[in-house]
Design a protein around this nucleic acid. Structure first.
Lengths: 203, 203
DNA sequence: GAAATATCTTGACAGTGTCCAGTACCTGTG
DNA sequence: CACAGGTACTGGACACTGTCAAGATATTTC
């Protein structure tokens, strides 16, 4: 049967399904994502998605991978735009970009960190996730090279990553607004991102 | 029908169901928790759980609430045991207790932060979650009172909370082991928890 | 144009959450 | 002790889900 508006072949079903997943996560939460609902939104039969993504986890993994790619790109862009400033300011800009990504792409962020996917099952997902982190770690290493402190780069990278990831998670989770009811989350985030290397051995 | 080992009435079905949920989360992941599987483990019919917890979210909320209660207790105990030491050491002990809770009770931790439950729907869940955070914030305020720095308590509390929460999330998620393959997570965690107030305005 | 392949449909099955009517047990009151 | 009322649980039903197998249709390749 030839669809008048399109064709028997959708044309770009994988991309359409990823868009459908994003809409569902935003509107109804990660728990309500289903292969069949995504298929309905894309206007195809209930089992069409399986031919592109294998199973439900495969679809979610592709969606999460897209998120890691976007995050890695955002972090890179932020670092490039802050080039020329101090290493601390570059790191702060990266951190702000991380939190901004989480808030502006909550659907992807949830799939990336709340879906319970096993990265070892999805090599491409693992690769993009590593890429996002690699940039942060390199910048931390550059910061430490300039200082006289023999701090452990792995530890400082994990420290900085924990801050921006924790902050993002708590914000997306609603915890920031919940615990600081009279505060705007933006002010909290700005303040926190100024603290990590504040007045200490890294300043 | 009278059950020889027990009774028609289970005796303590709510508690048995919470134990069942914990076992399922640990063994099969949060995604595979189901009312029916929990009921089977507790040896009751598929719709018995609804009479105690309403629906699936109600069961998960009760399990998560149990987790927040345990976390709040753990943080309190850690602070009491560290009493007499410097405020920074007390905070560090609290942070270590937070991470330890996440790792030792991964099931609860996942339900607390990965289940997507709306706290405004479950007042008791919200209350225990606030209680866990309140202790941390009080200790941060005590730390700042002693210093000459007019730092914003809300910001520093969010800062410290982000670190321990981000660290816990990344560890439970497997990200620490994934990014620092040659490192023991424990060493990373110890190192990170030494940094927050290291050599800076709060030392 | 025919064969091979990629894309999608249709139908089926077991498992799930939730509702509803019924059954077994306990508890308080006379 | 009887018995009424409430609590705790059962069993059946329904719509929805993920997944599988088989078939239909479009595209590509030769």
């Amino acid at each position: 049967m030839t669809n008048p508006t399109g064709a028997y072949h959708h044309g770009n079903l994988p991309e359409a399904l990823l868009v459908a997943v994003d809409e569902i996560v935003i509107a109804q939460g990660l728990e309500n994502v289903s292969l069949r609902a995504a298929a309905r939104r894309a206007g195809v039969s209930h089992s069409a998605p399986a031919h592109h993504f294998g199973d439900k986890d495969g679809l979610l993994a592709a969606y999460a991978e897209q998120g890691f790619t976007m995050l890695a790109d955002s972090l890179e862009t932020a670092a490039i735009e802050a080039a020329g400033q101090s290493m601390i300011d570059i790191l702060k800009a990266s951190g702000a970009a991380y939190v901004r990504f989480a808030v502006e792409h909550q659907g992807h962020f949830q799939a990336m960190f709340r879906s319970g996917l096993d990265k070892s099952t999805y090599p491409e997902l693992a690769a993009q996730s590593r890429r996002a982190f690699r940039g942060l770690k390199q910048r931390v290493e550059m910061l430490l090279q300039g200082g006289d402190d023999a701090a452990d780069a792995d530890v400082v990278a994990a420290y900085f990553w924990s801050i921006v990831h924790g902050l993002s998670s708590l914000w997306v989770d609603g915890a920031l607004e919940y615990m600081f009811t009279e505060e705007r989350p933006e002010r909290i985030v700005d303040g926190v991102l100024s603290l990590p290397f504040h007045g200490g051995a890294f300043s």
